[in-house]
Amino acid sequence: MSHSLAYEAVKKARKGLIRVKIVVDERSRRIADVRITGDFFMYPEDALWKLEDELRGAALDASEVTAKVRRALEGVRLVGSTPEDFTEAVLAALRGAGVRE
């Protein structure tokens, strides 16, 4: 039997939408998988996959998730969005899993 549940959120940044899909392992209360998509601009582009890697395995804890997003986006140039937009999008998805800030 699967113990994973998926949660989604969409955040509108000044320029672009950030869509987040997160699969949570309910037994370990950790992020099993995450996918962040949208029409934003990020430089270097492949920082997005690094951000996803960073979040995989993270505990369902708002401050841990926030710190991981900040760390992954350090030195990354966003055009029309901010690291806070990405944090908010991820936390919005996790709210469904009971994560509170």
Binding site: R19, R35, T37, D39, F40, M42
Partner: peptide, 10 residues
């Protein structure tokens, strides 16, 4: 579609 987009969502 853009590099970061989900095809089915757009």
């Amino acid at each position: 579609i853009g590099y970061f987009q989900e095809a089915g969502a757009e």
